[in-house]
Design a protein around this nucleic acid. Sequence first.
DNA 1: TATTGTTATACTCTATAACTATA
DNA 2: TATAGTTATAGAGTATAACAATA
Lengths: 166, 166
Amino acid sequence: MDTEPPGRAPTALGDPRSDDKALGLLLASAHEAARSSLNAELRPLGIETRHFGILVTLDRAGPTSQRGLGALLGLDKSAVVRIMDELERLGLAVRKRAEHDRRAYAIELTTEGRRYARTSATAADEVSARLFGWLSPADRDRLVTLLTGILTRADDGSTGNEPNRS
Amino acid sequence: MDTEPPGRAPTALGDPRSDDKALGLLLASAHEAARSSLNAELRPLGIETRHFGILVTLDRAGPTSQRGLGALLGLDKSAVVRIMDELERLGLAVRKRAEHDRRAYAIELTTEGRRYARTSATAADEVSARLFGWLSPADRDRLVTLLTGILTRADDGSTGNEPNRS
DNA sequence: TATTGTTATACTCTATAACTATA
DNA sequence: TATAGTTATAGAGTATAACAATA
């Protein structure tokens, strides 16, 4: 018989269909669970979501500065430094100097890094298939529209707490 | 006709309508922006989202044990200890001993705590109106269904990876 | 033995400020 | 002056393990 969803109880504060606090909690839970799932899938590779994002971005966009990576992924520049330190120590990416601007880097994937980018993308696909695969194209489109609407409205009025406007 | 989404670039990794990684990033961004908005609104009261959740829950459910609060809000018991320390220091809640179980507390709001619970709920309503008020009942229903589906599918498979031997 | 709560610890994420070297 | 990157630091979220008192 149907028991309550285990562990987390997204409706604990009320019904998210009518209760804003419960809807916010549901949003938080879905995000946290999704990230946790991806981390679990990436664990055998020895990387986590933060590395994954940069690997995939570099594999896609080619050599990029740290600031560029931060802008693409919504990360602070200091966060990119830390993640890049880890990726270099893992031998997956290298900091080469940009030719035209000696302040900046042109971050490149190593051969191993490119392999990791693709292997981890495949691993991530398995998580995605489970989490998002059941969505019809219309469902998915709707979800993106709804989330984007919430995001832009939050960013509008959040007391000038602008994220990465650098 | 469509220009790029402002501020954060949730589509930086790709189009979330077709790219799973971008959809995950969008989910993260929406959550983070929502929490940030609520924190900004609660700041004048001197509390944050974590206190808000407990205040509202206590105001609604009446005296509750710490473990009960954690279960309702998806918080670890050690997290509840920390938040309760803060709420007691703020004079908003008190730890009374449960009558039937001398291990447990029956956490109660103070008069001031009840006032805070309602004032902060009103403040939260303003955030909610901006973030969620534009959703039609059908939109909202759909969003809840989609997020719940993602959450349960994530919780299903992500914890099975832990070896967790005894 | 199991559970409530406490403490210690640790890792992640986010954010800021101060600093360097270039531009 | 402004920008790319580095470093240090801090707060918040999440999690676990060890422990005392009680069930």
